[in-house]
Design a protein around this nucleic acid. Structure first.
Length: 280
DNA sequence: GGGCATGTTAGCAC
DNA sequence: TGTGCTAACATGCC
């Protein structure tokens, strides 16, 4: 499921709960951690991870790029601040559930909470990762600015140091953090830029369009609670607004031309050949 | 069975 | 150093 808008939606639900009765995670005490698939614990060792997190209390839930940042206060006096970071990768889901619902077939980690609740990390494809660190920068320190927070001046100054194609650039989390394959394609279409245009070829006007398009598609995605269109993740509505992603051969909503699909750096890339002409 | 999948990383070449 | 290509991670759906 997870690009910036989907991760933001998960963070909001963990912070505030959800209308369907899902309770907030903030304020809960983590009694213990059950590691069902140790390879998803990136740091420290799974044993140390479980030992160190036990007894801590959830202070905050945030997001940076595609990472969930869960702020903890450790157990005991002189309690140290800890950060639990979760990356959902391709198929991760993180939800507060009742303890009786926690141990599903795809549950990879389960944190047992107070009041017979649990925080469940399901991940069919096992690509997800969790970290327990003193300082989030140990994990996210090399990421670029968050794609929602970045200001235009910084976006352009970073853009002007790059020379490669726009599609892989938008997916480069050290350039800008949070954009994935869907929102990259949607942003490039909205900006009327071909995915293989190079960063150094953009005019000032085109750079403005790209910046504005990124903001718009991400904010619309957040407003729609993200996108969901397969077996992985129910909930969001943004898939109903896709203009190009997954619409190969269908009509461009702007100009009625058939949407084309190409492969760029191993990723499916959808664009309108009329609205997004190649450089030339 | 083959092709596809919202992500990231390592190794390699230029 | 920047860029981009390939393979790998592991599983499930169509």
């Amino acid at each position: 499921m997870p690009e910036l808008p989907e991760v933001e939606t998960v963070a909001r639900i963990l912070r505030e709960g959800a209308p369907n009765g899902t309770l907030p995670l903030v304020g809960r005490t983590i009694r213990s951690a059950k590691v069902l698939w140790p390879r998803e614990v990136a740091s420290p060792t799974p044993h140390a991870f479980a030992r160190r997190i036990a007894g801590s209390r959830v202070q905050s839930v945030g997001r940076y790029g595609k990472y969930l940042l869960i702020g903890l206060r450790g157990a005991g006096d002189g309690a140290d601040a800890l950060s639990l970071l979760v990356h959902l990768r391709m198929s991760g889901r993180l939800e507060v559930v009742s303890r009786s619902e926690a141990f599903t077939p795809h549950a990879r980690l389960v944190w047992l909470l107070d009041d017979d609740l649990a925080l469940r990390f399901e991940d069919a494809r096992k690509f997800g990762r969790v970290w327990l660190v003193d300082d989030p920068a140990e994990v996210i320190g090399k990421l670029g600015p968050d794609a929602i927070d970045i200001k235009y001046e910084e976006f352009v100054s970073r853009l002007r140091t790059r020379f490669g194609a726009l599609k892989p650039l938008l997916l480069d989390q050290t350039f800008i953090a949070g954009i994935g394959n869907i929102y990259a394609d949607e942003a490039l279409h909205l900006a009327r830029l071909h995915p293989l245009r190079t960063a150094d070829s953009l005019s000032e006007d085109e750079a403005v369009r790209l910046y504005a398009a990124i903001r718009q598609v991400l904010l619309e995605g957040i407003a729609a609670n993200g996108a969901s269109f397969d077996w992985v993740y129910p909930g969001g509505k943004f898939q109903e607004n896709f203009k190009v992603y997954g619409r190969t051969g269908q009509r461009c909503p702007t100009c009625d031309s058939p949407i084309r699909r190409i492969i760029v750096t191993q990723r499916s890339t959808h664009f309108c050949p009329v609205c997004q002409p190649p450089a030339g």
